[in-house]
């Protein structure tokens, strides 16, 4: 099910990718492909290299070695045309209103669908005239979701979209992902710690540990072959290495 690297069906290809920062290696020798039209979860403990992997596939980081292809092209700063990236931090102008923020994105990105943005914002009951500075944490998180889901890019990458949110906000965001990702044309890659909660949402899951892909499988295979859930799978795979003492 992992599949051979087949660029035609893949939206992302990593070939021997490494990323070093001064004094430390964040990602080493990673090769994998992400098929089109799926939802992929990237899981792993803090500091495992998840964010670096997501930034590499969004063209926001340059690999130190190997190659990253997005939609058949080498990933770089221009990849933002093909990738909608939801960052973990907030990147709004706090003086802007919600409406002005949506307008700003419409101008920034040609593929931004303002009608879809307004409809998702309405489903979240976001007040368009509210200033960003006045939004609750949950509503800032929802606004980020609106911005990412309203872009019509082949790849949508979300770094921790559920982190630090209460269960009701998380649930509304998960529902919105299901309702608004265009599975015929889009692939969603998201990192999260809420492993149990997003399990029903995922086609495949990738476990990153110490800068390596430790596991990459269809969720269905994990459930039917091992008869376990993702949390146990994650625990088993990240524990093995430690017992080997490596």
């Amino acid at each position: 099910m992992t599949g051979q690297p087949n660029s035609a069906d893949a939206v992302v290809v990593f070939e021997g990718v490494g990323k070093k920062f001064i004094g430390r290696t964040a990602v080493s020798n990673m090769s994998f492909t992400i098929p089109k039209g799926q939802i992929i979860g990237v899981i792993g403990i803090n500091g495992s290299g998840k964010s670096t992997v997501l930034k590499l596939m969004a063209g926001l980081q340059k690999p130190s070695g190997g190659r990253v292809l997005v939609n058949g092209q080498t990933a770089n700063r221009l990849s933002c045309r093909d990738v909608a990236f939801l960052p973990e931090q907030d990147v709004f102008y706090s003086a802007h209103t919600v409406r002005r923020t949506l307008d700003f994105y419409r101008v920034m990105f040609q593929d931004f669908n303002i009608a879809k943005a307004l409809s998702i914002a309405e489903s979240f009951e976001l007040d368009l005239d509210q200033r960003i500075a006045k939004l609750s944490k949950g509503n800032r998180a929802r606004l980020k979701i609106v911005l990412a889901l309203s872009r019509q890019t082949p790849l949508v990458v979300m770094d921790e979209p559920l982190s630090g949110l209460d269960p009701l906000v998380r649930e509304s965001i998960i529902k919105s992902l299901i309702a608004n990702v265009d599975m015929e044309r889009q692939t969603l890659v998201m990192s999260t710690h809420e492993v149990g909660e997003i399990e029903p949402l995922l086609d495949k899951v990738m476990l990153i540990h110490e800068g390596e892909v430790r596991g990459y499988e269809a969720v269905e295979d994990i459930q039917s072959e091992y008869g376990i859930g993702l949390v146990s799978w994650m625990r088993e795979l990240s524990g093995e290495r430690r017992r080997d003492g490596i």
Binding site: G227, I228, G229
Partner: peptide, 14 residues
């Protein structure tokens, strides 16, 4: 409401 699933069987079968 989001449904509850068991992790021991593929969700599509459930």
């Amino acid at each position: 409401m989001v449904e509850q699933f068991s992790s021991t069987q593929p969700i599509y079968m459930q």
